[in-house]
Design a protein around this nucleic acid. Structure first.
Ligand code: FES
Ligand code: FES
Lengths: 151, 151
DNA sequence: TCTTAATCGGACAATTTTGTCCGATTAAGA
DNA sequence: TCTTAATCGGACAAAATTGTCCGATTAAGA
C-alpha cells in the first residue's frame, strides 16, 4: 500500500510534530530510535522531505530536523505520501493499464474508482497533528515498546 | 496496491474465464498476447494459480490453461489476489507496525481500518465472471489495442 | 514410433527497493 | 582555533521483485 520509505516518512513526521509542541529539534539518531526505523535510510527519506520544504533541517552541532508549529498544524497525511510515493495511489489502474480513464476503462474501473477516491480522501483529510495528539495521549503507538529489564 | 504478478494473474484469469464460455484451452503464448504481459513471467504466475487449484492445466501438445465453467461462475477477485499477494492488504498496518490490532493501534488504525475493510469487501464481492462479461461486451479492456496498419 | 508443441521447474539476469557507509560541509562550544 | 556532532550527498551493498532461459517431461498426431 505505502512503500517502506513512505511508512518511515509518515512516522518521522508524526514524531517531529510531537517535538514541535515544544519547538524541539531532533537528530536523526533520536528520530529513528523513537520510531524504530533504520537510521541511514530514514535520513534519506527526511532529506527528501526537506528538499520538498515539508521539514526543516539545521546542519552542524546541535543540528537536526524540525517542523514549524504553524506548518505542523496544517499538515495532512497526503502531503507526506505524495512527496515520497508520488500519486500512484491516486491515479494508477488496479490492473496496471497504462492510463486509468473513463474512456478506456479496465473491467474493475468503475467500482475501484470509488474505493480509491475514498482512500485518497482519507489521506487528504487526516491531519498529522491529530495523529500526534493520539500518540501523546497514549492512545496509539509508533513502535513496539521494548521491555526494559533491570537485571 | 497490487504487485505486478498479481495484476498479471487477475488479467490472465479474466482471460481464461472468457475462454471458459466455450470450454476453450489457452496456451501461455495465447494468454500473454491477449493481456499484453511478459510471457515467461505470466507463466510463473499461472503455475502458482494451478498449484493453488484455481486454474487447471494440461501438459503436452495442444495443452494449455483453462478454468471449469462452474468454477468460473464463482471466482472472486479476492481469490486470485490472496493466492498471489497473500493477505497483506487485509491485515497489514498502514504504517508497518508488526501487528495491526485494536489493542496497540498505530495513530491511523481506527480510520484506516474502515478503508481497508471497504477495499477487501470490494475484492471479495467482485466476481471475475462479471468482469469478463464486461470485456466481452466491449465495455472495458484488458490491454491497449494496437493499431494494425496495412502497409 | 517420432516429431512437435505444450507445461513445469530450476537457475539465472535485470531492475527496483531498501539499506549502509563514508567523506564533505557546517556550526556550536570549549 | 580546534574538536565535536550534526546534515548532505554520492557511492555502494543487500534484498526483493520482476523478467528470461533452458532442459525435463508430457501428450497429440502424423
Ligand atoms: S482503468 Fe483500471 S482502475 Fe481505472
Ligand atoms: S495498527 Fe496501523 S493500521 Fe492497524
Amino acid at each position: 500500500m505505502l512503500s517502506r520509505a513512505c511508512e518511515y516518512g509518515v512516522k518521522a513526521v508524526i514524531c517531529l510534530t510531537i517535538a514541535s509542541r515544544e519547538d524541539r529539534i531532533k537528530s536523526i539518531g533520536d528520530i529513528s530510535r523513537n520510531i524504530q526505523t533504520p537510521e541511514a535510510f530514514t535520513a534519506k527519506v527526511l532529506q527528501k522531505l526537506v528538499r520538498a520544504g515539508l521539514v526543516n533541517s539545521i546542519k552542524g552541532k546541535n543540528g537536526g530536523f524540525y517542523i514549524n508549529k504553524e506548518k505542523a498544524e496544517n499538515l495532512k497525511l497526503w502531503d507526506v505520501v505524495q512527496i515520497i510515493d508520488g500519486d500512484d495511489l491516486r491515479y494508477r489502474c488496479l490492473l496496471g493499464l497504462s492510463n486509468c480513464s473513463n474512456a478506456k476503462p479496465c473491467p474493475v474501473h468503475e467500482s475501484y474508482k470509488t474505493i480509491r477516491e475514498d482512500l485518497v480522501r482519507f489521506l487528504k483529510r487526516t491531519e498529522i497533528k491529530i495523529l500526534s495528539d493520539r500518540v501523546i495521549r497514549g492512545e496509539s503507538i509508533l513502535k513496539i515498546e521494548t521491555i526494559l529489564r533491570t537485571n
